[in-house]
Design a protein around this nucleic acid. Sequence first.
DNA 1: GGGCATTCTTTCGCATCCGAAACAAATGAT
DNA 2: ATCATTTGTTTCGGATGCGAAAGAATGCCC
Lengths: 120, 120
Amino acid sequence: MTAVGNTRQALQLWRDVLAHMIRDDRPDLTARQLAIVLTVYLGTPPHTVRGLSTGLSMPKPAVTRALDALVRQGLVKRARDEKDKRNVLVQRTVKGSIFLSDFGETVLSKQSGLYQEETP
Amino acid sequence: MTAVGNTRQALQLWRDVLAHMIRDDRPDLTARQLAIVLTVYLGTPPHTVRGLSTGLSMPKPAVTRALDALVRQGLVKRARDEKDKRNVLVQRTVKGSIFLSDFGETVLSKQSGLYQEETP
DNA sequence: GGGCATTCTTTCGCATCCGAAACAAATGAT
DNA sequence: ATCATTTGTTTCGGATGCGAAAGAATGCCC
């Protein structure tokens, strides 16, 4: 079962990763933008605007705007669905893969360092 | 240690928690704001603006603005340091404690449900 | 093919955040 | 007492995000 200590450690991990993200000179991703990137890279394609909208419970225009920002940064790309040209397929990019990989490593590294003091 | 097995699971956990935060009708906290809240509640007092600024590598005005938002929502409070009245001590609140507790529970619950499918 | 439904984007007005620099208050040094 | 330092806040112009509603393109159905 989950003990109180685990909660604290989970929060500490979250804090450390956030601190790392802030330090990064990378343009800040909002919670929604990050959620979209993670969904696109972890879930099974195809990913449409509507699918992301319902899956993350956010309005479609918000998805469109978030995608604008993500495409601008090259973390994701848009492609028309040829079978139904209304759909926009959100696809992965090399840059996005690298970003996700780095992010994952950050989480794991902060996790393994939970008992160490912050070194400013 | 928290039992996040591999990179993929860590990222999946992150996504699920973000999705939960987005769904929440609570006003969105930026990464910086959340990092500050977590730092205040997990770290040992006293917490000053300068301390948060250096500890999270963000400019002091950014800390002040983030605190404005957090105080507005009642998640932290400001208090003058009587020993050195230049300092502002950032302190915890009941509402903030509840928020943090809820957030921690969210993380743990998403963690334990990593192998389950999304239920919209 | 005419009309309705679906999918995504754009527009509108508003709120918030940003970094840099200027500012205000309290302290310390001499 | 005076002046420099430290601490935190405010101001400035600019960028970005938000929800709601309107708009545009494509597909479906009879």
